[in-house]
């Protein structure tokens, strides 16, 4: 479970070799939109060469491949990365149909990478539930820029135009215990706007937010880390459970049972991982 997914272009050595200094929980090395069509092979070769030499324990690495409708690109991407030590792939323009093709390809090639699907078409928003349910899917990532183009509307800070998509993704993901990852905020220098956008997504129930600039990671972590209050509450629950040696007790008048205690423990584990425990 990550709070931040940072996109890094796959064909820019300066960014690639610094991917571990930006403090993101997860990195998505991009072969798709940020790589020009005549640079695709360069991105594959650079990423291959880099990840064969350097390994990252603390960091979850993903690669955004080209979408499966571009068969040649997609298959060349997969051939280039299937032996790499990465956590999974990010699949653009996901739909049920696309997922079926990928599924068949993965079966044939014996590939087991988990998939984060980018929901960026109206059809995908409608299919979100079934996509989320798919066994290979680890999470859903909203791609609001492409989606609003298809909707014939424009992106605003208010984000009314993507409210339905956001909620649909959160419901679909949560229904199947998958990750719900919010769309990147594309105005790189607008830190105030980023804060508003991130806070809104966190409130809607997203577990993480993607970003296209390293300088956004700190703000994203601020809104997607367990809050001080939540940590304090979780600590009390765990402590009380230990003290009473019980998995079922009352605290401040509300009932605490095993799922609550497990959730509290999971929250503390995450808080520790993110360095926000104290």
């Amino acid at each position: 479970m990550s709070r931040s997914y940072l996109f890094i272009p796959g064909d820019v050595p300066r960014m690639l070799q610094n991917l571990d200094v930006f403090d993101a929980d997860s990195i998505i090395i991009d072969f798709e939109d940020s790589v020009a069509i005549d640079q695709k092979d360069e991105a594959r070769l650079l990423t291959q060469a880099f990840l064969s030499k350097h390994h990252f324990k603390e960091l979850d690495l993903y690669i955004r491949v080209n979408d499966v409708s571009q068969k040649t690109l997609f298959e060349a991407d997969m051939q280039a990365i299937k032996a790499l030590n990465i956590h999974g792939i990010v699949l653009p323009k996901v739909t049920l149909e696309a997922l079926d093709s990928v599924d068949a390809f993965f079966d044939r090639e014996n590939i087991t990478f988990p998939i984060i699907g980018i929901i960026e078409t109206p059809l995908a928003v409608l299919e979100a539930q079934t996509i989320a349910k798919h066994k290979r899917i680890q999470g859903l990532l909203l791609g609001a820029e492409d989606l609003t183009k298809d909707l014939g509307t424009t992106r605003t800070l208010d984000a009314e135009e993507i409210l339905f998509a956001r909620s649909q993704i959160v419901f679909a993901a949560k229904a199947y215990q998958k990750e719900a990852i919010d769309t990147p905020y594309v105005f790189v220098r607008d830190e105030a706007g980023l804060a508003v956008d991130a806070q809104r997504a966190a409130r809607l129930g997203f577990t993480a937010k993607a970003s296209i600039h390293p300088n956004h990671v700190e703000t994203i972590h601020h809104y997607f880390s367990p809050s001080k209050e939540a940590i304090h509450e979780a600590k009390r629950i765990v402590a009380q459970s230990k003290k009473l040696n019980s998995m079922r007790f009352s605290l401040d008048g509300s009932m605490v049972d095993k799922p609550v205690i497990d959730r509290a423990k999971a929250l503390l584990k995450r808080a520790e991982k993110y360095g926000v425990l104290s």
Binding site: P13, E42, L45
Partner: peptide, 16 residues
């Protein structure tokens, strides 16, 4: 100031 991996990858691409 490319690192070895980048020189190797660029050259491999050029050779292809």
């Amino acid at each position: 100031g490319a690192l070895d991996y980048a020189i190797e990858a660029r050259l491999t691409s050029a050779i292809k």
